[in-house]
């Protein structure tokens, strides 16, 4: 096979999904004892843990007098990718992702309730198979809820692209490397606002709509799964309370 084909004649993708399917989600909340809120999030082979500390007193000089500041650190474990890389101190992609998360949650968390304080988000990638940014955002949402930090809404993110004439939902690593559009959409699923939307490369204008719809549908699907998990987690806690 000279050229890698992303979609088989039967309409299946490399990992066997159809174009409008997301990968299997597996998530847990409250996995770390020391953190105020934490989550473990699996989307296919992408595996992420998130720890949240705060709101606590600002450790830096840059405390904001009327609201909480949010700090985000995004780190890839050196064993998370197929080839081991020496981590550089100024990793631009990590910086980009952490800024994305920071901005998404600055607009979602009710920061005005905690003036002069700080919320720390630590994202650790354990295994990387594409869709890191979207997975990280979803994982942080879960950890925020676990921490009990007041938010306007969930933040749900999903990627979509356009390869070989059709729009694909939730890219894996191979599909991300195809050089397609790689649209990342994050939304407030209940309030119905877009938090961020960015695209890596160009897409024909008449196709953009279908890619955007695909990403939106992915966000909605993820929202329902997160919602289910949050309710299940809450019920578990409640049953534990009754026993204990």
């Amino acid at each position: 096979m000279s050229k890698l084909s992303y979609i088989s004649p039967e309409g299946l993708r490399i990992d066997g999904r159809r174009s409008n399917e997301i990968r299997r989600l597996n998530m847990r909340m409250g996995v770390l004892n020391r953190a105020d809120g934490s989550s473990y999030y699996e989307q296919g082979n992408t595996k992420i843990t998130v720890a949240i500390y705060g709101p606590h007193e600002s450790t830096t000089q840059k405390s904001l007098f009327d609201r909480a500041s949010i700090k985000c650190e995004f780190a890839m474990s050196s064993f998370s990718t197929s080839e081991r890389k020496v981590k550089s101190r100024f990793d631009k992609t990590a910086y980009e992702t952490s800024t994305l998360i920071k901005q998404a949650f600055e607009s979602t968390v009710l920061t005005h309730l905690f003036p002069r304080s700080q919320i720390d988000i630590y994202v650790q990638v354990l295994q990387s198979d594409g869709g890191l940014k979207s997975a990280a955002i979803n994982a942080v949402t879960l950890a925020m809820i676990d921490a009990g930090i007041p938010m306007r809404d969930y933040v749900c993110a999903c990627s979509a692209t356009f390869i070989e004439g059709s729009a694909l939902m939730d890219l894996n690593h191979m599909e991300e490397r195809s050089g397609g559009a790689d649209l990342l959409l994050s939304i407030h699923p209940q309030l119905g606002g877009v938090i961020s939307i960015n695209m890596e490369s160009k897409v024909p204008q008449e196709m953009f709509e279908s890619v955007l719809d695909m990403a939106l549908a992915g966000c909605k699907k993820i929202y329902y799964l997160l919602q289910e998990q949050v309710k299940k987690h809450s019920k578990d806690l409640m049953s534990n309370q009754l026993v204990g």
Binding site: M144, I145, P150, M151, R152, D153, Y154, H188, P189, Q190, L191, Q227, V230, K231, S234, K235, M238
Partner: peptide, 9 residues
């Protein structure tokens, strides 16, 4: 009832 962030009350 259990409610989640962003849920309309």
């Amino acid at each position: 009832t259990i409610v989640t962030p962003g849920q309309k009350l």
